[in-house]
Structures are given as C-alpha cells and as structure tokens.
Design a protein around this nucleic acid. Structure first.
Lengths: 136, 136
DNA sequence: GTCCCTGCAAACGTTTTGCACACAG
DNA sequence: CTGTGTGCAAAACGTTTGCAGGGAC
C-alpha cells in the first residue's frame, strides 16, 4: 500500500503513474499474482500501462527486496509482496489458489548441508483446497 | 536403470529405442536434468531422437509416477528420477548445481492447514556451494 | 534540461501441437 | 495388421530486449 510507495520514494525511486498502479496492484494479504495478472489489475486503474513496464517494474521491485519471486510447476513466475514475515506457501494442485502459511523454516544439519551456505528456503505444500475436494 | 525399463515394460509401456535411451539418461543419483540436457544425453547414445519425443516421454514418465517434475527460479523444468525417497533440494544460486538432501518433511498443524488436504511438500534450500563461495 | 522510464514490436528460449510416416506388439 | 510412437516444423507461451519518444525530478 502507501507504505511501499513511501519506502520506494525515500529510496530515490522515480515515481511514475505506471509504477504506482503496479505497486498498488501488489498490495494485500495472500497476493501471489503472475505478471499478466498484475498487468490486468494495473490496467484497470490506468489503461496506459504496457506489459514491458510491468515486467521491468516487477523485476526491479524484486531486486530492491520489496517483492519475492516464487516459481512453481506451471512455469509462470508469481510475485509475493510479503517480504517481512518468513513464510511458506500452500497451493491447491487443482485450482492454483495459494495461501501464505507461517511455519518454522526447516533447518539442515551440518552433514545435510554438504558444505553449502544456505541463504533461504522455499517451501511449497502441494495440496487440495476445500472447494476442489468437494467438487471432484 | 534397467529396473525402470523393466517396470515400464511390465506396465504395458511400448518400448522403443528412443524411449529406452531417454529413460537411461535419467538414471543415477543427484540427476536433475532439463529437457534439453536429456535430449543431449539421449542423442549421445542414439542420434535419431527428436526434441518432441523427449518432451512427450518425460511428461508421460511424470504421469506414470516414475519421475518428479521440479521447477525453480530459472523457469525451466527439471526432472528427478528419485521418486522412492522423500527428499528436498539444495541448489546453488550461482552455478545451479543441485543436490538431493534427505530431511524430515515439515508438517503443518491443523490451523496452518486452512482445511487443505496436503499431498506433498516441495522444499528448496537456496544456497551457495563451496566452489562458488571461494571464487567470488 | 537531463536522465531514466515508457510503449511498441520484435526476438528469445522453452514447451506444445499437427500431421504424415514408421515400427513394436 | 493395428495402434501408437516418431520426427519435423510451426505455433504457443511467458519473458526479455532495442529503440525512439516522453515525463519526473
């Protein structure tokens, strides 16, 4: 929301109408939009937004640490504005609905680490949501 | 290896030269090949293998439960022949090297589950491998 | 006024598809 | 023989890039 905009402005981010509606499209809980969905939401607020701008703005926000990029089996990237709380994802294999879940991150023991320096963990619970479980 | 071929034949799988070399390209520990890498390995053994056949064979093996499909940030699908042991992945963010790690899968408590039926868990540890840590 | 963001369209890499032909069963 | 796997090429899909023009600071 506005917090994000303010934070970006104070970091010297050049604020344009397009960037503002793109940032606004990414606010809220349990938002995990694809680039195309962001484009749709941004254009609903401001028709003159191009696909290229959405892509460049999203990847810049990822570089700035304001968005997380998550990639799952469908091959499309999704963007998650929740960068402050460490969390995992619960995704329905039928409808694709995705929720954030707050769980302790699994740790690797020294011998499981194979000498790697672990930076972070991406955990996805593949599941079936209540709606999809009933209408099979 | 041969086990996979035998298993497929006994399940009524039509065995062709192309399918055999593709299945053979997927055997071993810590194999996480992309479709293109599989094509290269298959063609090393049998030049008359087409890209389309590799893709259709790989996705059929995934449907049969003989391969796991894993997708990470680079957007390319990778295929993992280790379907018998529950495991996670340790991937180097610099060179892309990927190792299997055997860890207990994290469980979700009832209130974290949001009514979803959890089918399986995909865990990826983003890390830096020893080689990439030294030559920075 | 300067620099960087923007839109358009074309290029890109990966995956999928349509269609004859070939071959395993 | 029959059904299905195969190769080729083209299309589909999400994403990236090049470039001229425009707007934020």
């Amino acid at each position: 929301m506005t917090q994000l905009i303010d934070r970006l402005r104070s970091r010297g981010w050049r604020l344009t109408a397009q960037r503002r509606v793109i940032a606004e499209a990414m606010s809220g809980e349990h938002v995990h939009a694809t680039a195309d969905e962001v484009l749709g939401r941004a254009r609903a607020a401001l028709p003159e937004v191009s696909r290229a701008t959405v892509y460049s703005t999203l990847s810049e926000l990822v570089s700035l640490g304001e968005l997380l990029e998550i990639t799952h089996a469908d091959g499309r990237k999704r963007y998650d504005p929740n960068v402050t709380e460490r969390h995992h994802h619960l995704v329905c294999v039928d409808c694709g609905q995705m929720l954030d879940v707050h769980a302790d991150d699994p740790r690797l023991s020294a011998d499981q680490r194979h000498g790697f320096e672990v930076l972070d963990v991406e955990v996805t619970f593949r599941a079936r949501c209540p709606d999809c479980a009933t209408d099979d």
